[in-house]
Computed example of a mutant assay.
Amino acid sequence: MTSSTPAPKTNKGAIHRGKAPAVVGWSWLDNLIHVHPVITVAMYTPVIITCVWFAVEGEQANSWALLGWAAAGYVTWTLSEYWGHRVVLHYEPEKGFGARLHYILHGIHHDYPQDVRRSLLSPLLSVPMVAGTIYMASGLGSLPLTFGAGYAFGYLTYDLFHLYLHHATPKNRLMRHLRSLHMRHHFRDDTSGFGISAPYWDELFGTSVARPSRSTTRSGRQTA
């Protein structure tokens, strides 16, 4: 007689269509906690341009060094995306302030996956992450400001990429595959598939949603 392991953990809340209700009692505060995509682009595009401008205008600006710092910043963002999504956004306290905060920052997105504003990372997280990175980079001189630019660019492209996967119907084969991976994270198993714009980190760290879940039967069949 064979025994089976539990099925993969799935999202606890019911999936709803349309716009989510406000997460706080004041609409103005709700609009600060979750912003429209246009606001996100308007916030971070000038930050990226400013960082690049000061880096290029700095002393001993070298094209390869600028690109190297920018690439390092982008890669650092992809790691922030993966680990932030896995460790921070999917840390789910059962009750109290922690449970409430989790719902505000990410749980509401899983409950209302088609709400445009809830598809973007809240400024409560994005502003400290981007501002902190740029501040630390600026302490190393003008050239490393492109590290901050690369990090901010990575964040902005991630947000827009995530929005695209939720609200578009990709025609490109690669985009269809990436959308399929992310939808599996939402609707099959939210304990895997944390790299949205950078799914290769899931492959490296063993959390790829494309692989059979760890919760499989002894016979090798994936549980439903």
Rank of each mutant, 00 (worst) to 15 (best):
G107D: 06
S192Y: 11
K95P: 01
A99E: 04
A7K: 13
S219E: 09
I108Q: 04
H102L: 07
S192F: 09
M43R: 07
A198S: 15
S63V: 15
A65D: 04
R179H: 10
N11A: 13
P212D: 10
Y164G: 02
I104R: 07
T157Q: 10
H177R: 14
G150T: 03
H102P: 03
L181H: 11
A72D: 03
K95H: 14
G25F: 02
L143C: 03
D190N: 15
T50W: 14
P144Q: 12
D202I: 09
A131L: 11
R211M: 09
V41A: 14
H36K: 13
W28D: 11
N31G: 14
S192M: 11
Y44K: 06
R221T: 11
V38N: 03
L120P: 02
F147Y: 14
L105R: 00
P199A: 09
H167R: 06
S138Q: 13
P6E: 09
T50L: 12
L143K: 07
S197W: 05
N11M: 10
S192E: 04
W26P: 00
P113H: 08
F97D: 01
G141V: 11
Y158G: 04
A20K: 05
S119H: 02
E94F: 13
R214N: 12
T2R: 06
A7V: 13
A55N: 02
T157P: 04
I49F: 08
T223R: 14
S119Q: 06
G150R: 08
G84A: 10
L101V: 15
L178W: 12
A71M: 13
H162T: 06
T76C: 15
H102C: 10
L125T: 01
V127S: 02
G98E: 09
R100P: 01
M1F: 14
S142P: 01
V130I: 15
L66R: 07
H185V: 03
P6L: 08
G68S: 06
A61K: 09
R188D: 14
G150Y: 04
M175Y: 10
Y164F: 15
L67I: 11
A198E: 00
V41C: 09
I134M: 06
V47K: 00
A168D: 07
D115L: 06
A42L: 05
R17C: 03
M183Y: 08
F194V: 03
T157A: 12
L124G: 02
I15H: 04
V127A: 09
F147S: 01
T10R: 15
A224Y: 03
H182P: 02
L89A: 02
H85L: 08
S80P: 00
H34V: 02
V75P: 00
A55C: 05
R214I: 10
E81T: 03
W69F: 15
T157Y: 14
I39W: 08
A20N: 03
H166E: 12
A71K: 01
P199I: 06
T40G: 08
V24C: 08
S119V: 04
S215K: 12
L89P: 00
E59G: 05
A168F: 13
W77G: 00
T217P: 00
P6D: 11
S126Y: 09
Y164K: 10
P6A: 10
W83Q: 04
R218A: 12
V24E: 01
D190L: 14
P199C: 10
A137E: 02
Y44Q: 04
H186N: 04
T146S: 10
L125V: 06
R17I: 09
T78I: 01
L140H: 05
R100N: 11
K12F: 13
R86N: 07
P46L: 02
V116Q: 05
A224L: 09
